[in-house]
Amino acid sequence: MNFSPLIISIKVSVIATIITFFLGIIGARVVVKMKRGKGLVDGIITLPMILPPTVVGFFLLLLFGKNSPLGRLLMNFDISIVFTWVAAVIASTVVSFPLMYRTVRGAFEDVDSDMIAAARTLGLSETRIFWKIIVPNVFPSIMAGTILAFARALGEFGATIMIAGNIPGRTQTMAVAVYTAVQSGNRELAYKWVAIICTISFASMFLMNYITSRHVKKNVKRGGL
């Protein structure tokens, strides 16, 4: 059994999760602070969660293909995104972003506004309020969002196969390997990959629950939260 899909999957989903982690928090912060057009922006950036992944993949293919302005621009720098593992990272980031963003945004909105007002009267800057008060308060949600995003990125198939292709040893992730194994009638291989994906996904969920519950307990003990 060739384990390259496992390595590619982990590499792609870890990088995608890191990008999503920051983009999701920033996105949530920006949208929560918005005064006008909140609904529109929210709708647009949540779209990849609702659209079928193949549609997202097709958009990305059009966006990064050589017929698009962006594709041509990249071509000038000799950068070709389509059919590379970078394309898989882009696909995974786009589909996992809304999960992070949604989870964190919901938590941001639940932060006690009195606490923020109190901090302001004490002269804390907005940036410091964000990092010292809001972020610690929404910590469980950030963890939950991150792990959901990771699990989603790990299982990403539709958008990935569209833009990154299915090149064994290069862009073939575990989810794509399952598809290929089933297509070619190789049941046993498909079962093996399914088992590996299930194990990793389950472990992520377990980790999430563990971290969140530990955090809650700790805070209860300290009289926080």
């Binding site: 097709f58 293919l61 059009l62 990064f64 293909g65 050589k66 017929n67 594709g71 070709s80 389509v82 059919f83 196969i161 569209m162 292709g165």
Partner: peptide
């Protein structure tokens, strides 16, 4: 899907 990828300049 392969047809679409090639049309969009995938390096096949």
């Amino acid at each position: 899907a392969l047809q679409n990828q090639i049309e969009e300049g995938a390096p096949a």
